[in-house]
Design a protein around this nucleic acid. Structure first.
Length: 201
DNA sequence: TTCCAGGCAATAC
DNA sequence: GTATTGCATGGA
């Protein structure tokens, strides 16, 4: 199967995914106007960090804890005691590491203006390639493709590309699909959805 | 009970 | 430069 065929067949099978989910809004299929403000942008970045090797349902519990305590802002995150932050994000797992990662990112978010570069994001402790690309693609609508474990697994299964190299898989997609953030957002979300379905078979 | 999820950094070879 | 290992909760 070719790459664009996979994209179209997944879209036909699952429909528009409406990523990235926002608290109080949820998923928003065919609405690409998000994030609508810096508050939503920051929330997406926090979610991207919390979901590292962690199921989204667990991340939602942690996000709700922060939201309900009115702490879902960079100012609050940098100020709060780290042990207190750890406690609130506990459901997301790895909570000691992630509390530190969130404070590292919140500090950057407050000091930095405009769209960050991939290199700037990667220099933050706690932001690796997938998280950096997720932040750029969903938080800033930059057409950069996000590769995750499902992507590699499905590409191999479909005989598209057998590689464990992040940048190689990323470039493969970016050279073959139109550089459109809407398409990259949908495709990554569809690959995750398909990966979940395959796991449940 | 074991397995693993929308990874990352540190360390070991 | 590539391969391991620690980090942790909640659901299947």
């Amino acid at each position: 199967m070719r790459l664009d065929q996979l994209y179209h067949s997944l879209l036909l099978k699952y429909g528009y995914q409406g990523w990235w989910p926002i608290t109080g809004v949820g998923y928003h299929p065919k609405d690409y106007s998000f994030p609508r403000n810096d508050r939503e942008r920051f929330e997406i970045c926090v979610g991207a960090i919390l979901t590292q090797n962690t199921s989204w349902t667990n991340v939602e519990k942690a996000l709700n804890n922060l939201h309900n305590n009115n702490l879902l802002s960079p100012e609050k995150i940098v100020k709060i005691d780290r042990a207190e932050l750890s406690k609130l994000i506990k459901p997301a797992g790895y909570y000691n590491q992630k509390a530190r990662y969130l404070q590292n990112f919140a500090t950057f978010f407050l000091e930095h203006r405009g769209i960050p570069s991939r290199e700037e994001l990667l220099s933050i402790k706690g932001i690796g390639k997938e998280t950096a690309d997720s932040i750029l693609l969903y938080g800033y609508n930059v057409p950069t493709f996000v590769v995750d474990a499902y992507t590699k697994r499905i590409f191999k299964r479909e005989g598209i590309l057998d590689s464990n190299n992040y940048d190689e898989v990323k470039e493969y997609v970016e050279k073959r699909l139109k550089k459109d953030y809407k398409i990259y957002q949908e495709f990554h979300a569809l690959l995750v959805q398909h990966g979940k379905v395959l796991n449940s078979l």
